[in-house]
Design a protein around this nucleic acid. Structure first.
Lengths: 189, 189
DNA sequence: CACTGGCGAGAACGATCGTTCTCACTTCCG
DNA sequence: CGGAAGTGAGAACGATCGTTCTCGCCAGTG
């Protein structure tokens, strides 16, 4: 495992440190130590910390959304059930050790005002997630607007679970989503 | 206005800078310059940056919740209307220039893992807000759980408005809240 | 074999940060 | 008047950060 390619080891170390402690709180030397790579190699792969941060966010976005999509598609069921499965997946995520909220919201709050690429990454991540929910909602036959409501619930659950350190926000959000969704679907075929 | 007491001027400058750029991105020297106070006086009132950060969060929490409570109580109407007025107030907040999301969520993401007092301030702020909503929901006769649903919507709206830079999240959240609330109140006197 | 080029390990560098110190000057009180 | 105490303005200090450089070493090539 430790003879993986250096780029992956660097990104793994950076992700754990950046996500767990915040980006500014982690120096390049900490990334170097955690990844077991030499400083020269570190800067060879990522010419600046900004590049590393960007790669960290980009890889995490892809992994996060892929993991969600896999869980939801494996859950099967109707589109309505799949929308609710999103919140089950959130609940599993919240319960993971070291969960500390949305990496994109955290980095947006920390660096969004000064580093445009971080703000853009956060916006992109949230847009993709909203778009994913919108696709499921449309398949479920829900009226437009419902997807946005569910996205707000998910977003709120993530933040609430992080600040309170309590994964039950996912179940609350799921219940609210179910109420909204079934009400929205009630007047439809 | 510039001969207000130094403590207030320091806190005003710190709030604008910390909220607008993130805490770590703002040095004590920037606070000193913006407040027009001497370095000695700055450290006389706040012996360390941590103390200043703590005071910043504490004052902002009080102001934020007081402003919300004033708006809601002035809105009058039934408890149901007051709950919806919360989201109107959010919409006004989102439209303010320089809006950049919840100061507590932002500082939690930035420093929550390393600075316990920041994590505690964020938790306290969210608990107070949830408690406020719970009081209104109980007055409205909503079943338990509804307040938590509305809190998730509000939380999600704040984050979404910040990342997208678009205040319409408040209207979306208000509409979802209305649906949840009226459904919850339908089977009650 | 001689030599060139890349490597690991870590020191070094310049900038910045939080915090404290210096120093000339004022102000109050006997 | 004289000195004790406090002030403003900013330099200074030690630590840390992002980034680059040095140096001894090894592999491969002619």
């Amino acid at each position: 495992m430790e003879h993986e390619d250096p780029r992956t080891r660097i990104l793994d170390a950076a992700e754990e440190l950046f996500y767990g402690q915040g980006i500014q709180a982690v120096g390049m030397d900490a990334v170097r130590t955690a990844s077991g790579v030499t400083m020269r190699r570190l800067y060879q792969h990522f010419p600046s910390k900004n590049d590393l941060v960007e790669a960290y966010l980009q890889r995490r976005d892809g992994r996060w959304r892929a993991s969600l999509a896999v869980h939801v598609s494996r859950a099967g069921g109707t589109p309505r059930d799949q929308l609710l499965a999103v919140f089950d997946w959130l609940g599993q995520w919240f319960a993971e050790p070291g969960f500390r909220g949305c990496a994109f919201v955290n980095s947006f709050g920390e660096l969004g005002a000064t580093t445009p690429v971080v703000a853009a990454a956060a916006r992109h991540h949230k847009e993709e997630f909203s778009g994913y929910l919108a696709g499921l909602a449309e398949a479920a036959g829900a009226p437009p607007g419902t997807a946005a409501h569910l996205a707000l619930l998910a977003e709120g659950a993530i933040t609430t679970a992080a600040v309170h350190g309590d994964p039950t926000a996912a179940a609350d959000a799921r219940e609210a989503a179910r109420l909204l969704l079934d009400a929205a679907l009630a007047g439809r075929p």
